[in-house]
Write a protein that binds this DNA or RNA. Sequence first.
DNA 1: GGACAACAGTGTCCTACCGATACTGTTTCC
DNA 2: GGAAACAGTATCGGTAGGACACTGTTGTCC
Lengths: 234, 234
Amino acid sequence: MDEDTAADGTIQLLWGLREGPTRGPKPVLSLERIAQAAVDLADAEGLGAVSMQRVAADLDFTKMSLYRYVTGKDELVAAMIDLAVGTPPTLADLPGPSWRPRIEAWVRLLAQTWEAHPWLPWVTMGDRVMGPHETGWTELSAAALAETGLTVPERMSLARMLGGHVRTTMSVLTAGTQPWVNRRQAALLREHADRYPTLCAMLDSEGAPPDNGRDFGLRLILDGVERLVADRAG
Amino acid sequence: MDEDTAADGTIQLLWGLREGPTRGPKPVLSLERIAQAAVDLADAEGLGAVSMQRVAADLDFTKMSLYRYVTGKDELVAAMIDLAVGTPPTLADLPGPSWRPRIEAWVRLLAQTWEAHPWLPWVTMGDRVMGPHETGWTELSAAALAETGLTVPERMSLARMLGGHVRTTMSVLTAGTQPWVNRRQAALLREHADRYPTLCAMLDSEGAPPDNGRDFGLRLILDGVERLVADRAG
DNA sequence: GGACAACAGTGTCCTACCGATACTGTTTCC
DNA sequence: GGAAACAGTATCGGTAGGACACTGTTGTCC
């Protein structure tokens, strides 16, 4: 019951169902300004820097004034997500003669958006209620995959999977030699070469992709889809 | 520099490099007991319930006593991870005549471990230093993929990708009708059927997999690998 | 064997955080 | 024009993580 009412509040906030009062002083702040300030802060100093106090200070207001627009930090984060994710593209933004280049473009656009707000992968995990923008991204992916011939659950599993793949290939931005292991980890591997012979032998190999294997993994997944589609057609 | 020394401390902790003193009273607590209490707490009440105070209380000790074994909460979480992930399997635990059933078994075992500790997906994101157990899991995946003929970066990208796939297919444990959308989200979609026609049309479809599409996605990925291997061989 | 140094666990304090509540001043409707 | 409704403020409480000084215990060295 507690979570339910909290989720209801978030839904009302994100989907514009909050009843706007008529009497009383005019609001000086707005949800958009607050969310924008929070997004800017998270972009600049990371999600850990986002506190009610700090967001309010950046707006030259008191911390408690934010609670007139947001019932708590969870709602603020939800508003941040839907603002940062932005207006979703449309099918016209996904060129190509078939579903494959279209969904590739979708992944590319999603990755661009997430890279602009590196805190998004952390906040978009778990069971949530998506806002209108985020739902629009999902709608677009569903539309792009419609002509694959996959079943509906398969299509949605695939869409979710692709989003997860973007997350996986973004969360590690190591500046080490190998993208799959950072500097300290490599040193530890060399110290314990007996326990980890396979990994240790891999340390000095070449040809690491600059994108954390995003294109490589995307190719694998979509090749798998093509095979599945072909198998069913034939 | 600050992060560096903190990471060094975590490395020393996880890899048993902490200098054990000889003089003074004998320690009553131990890192293992502390980490185990924290893991039990996280399993029972979620990661949010894990605080220094609470872990210490569960052990009938003072909060500050934990700091004799752990420099801070980050180190505690790192110790929790390597304890919860447990002793990794060996190649003997991955049956099969080829790499494919072996890596499938690896994914299955990893998923089992993570499902037993549902907080693991959240704390194993981002750039970290893995402990010995976690490194063992990675070593095993690298060994299982050795015979694919993929390049080293490709193999490690694939291994990371599979771990991410387990994360993606676990983080949503919705009890709704469709696994890709929860109850509230479905209601919102129906209310805004004009904005999200594709998703809305999907709401009443059948055949949702009970595993959040984990097997489906795994099949896609490994089919893609097989095609890549075949293409290069031919 | 006794003094001292090293150490384990405690008690106290500080800062940062989220959030509740009572308040002040402003706007609009009756 | 008065009263209700509302925006923003000021203050308070509870819970985090963590620094620091302290008490008591243990081993080592003379």
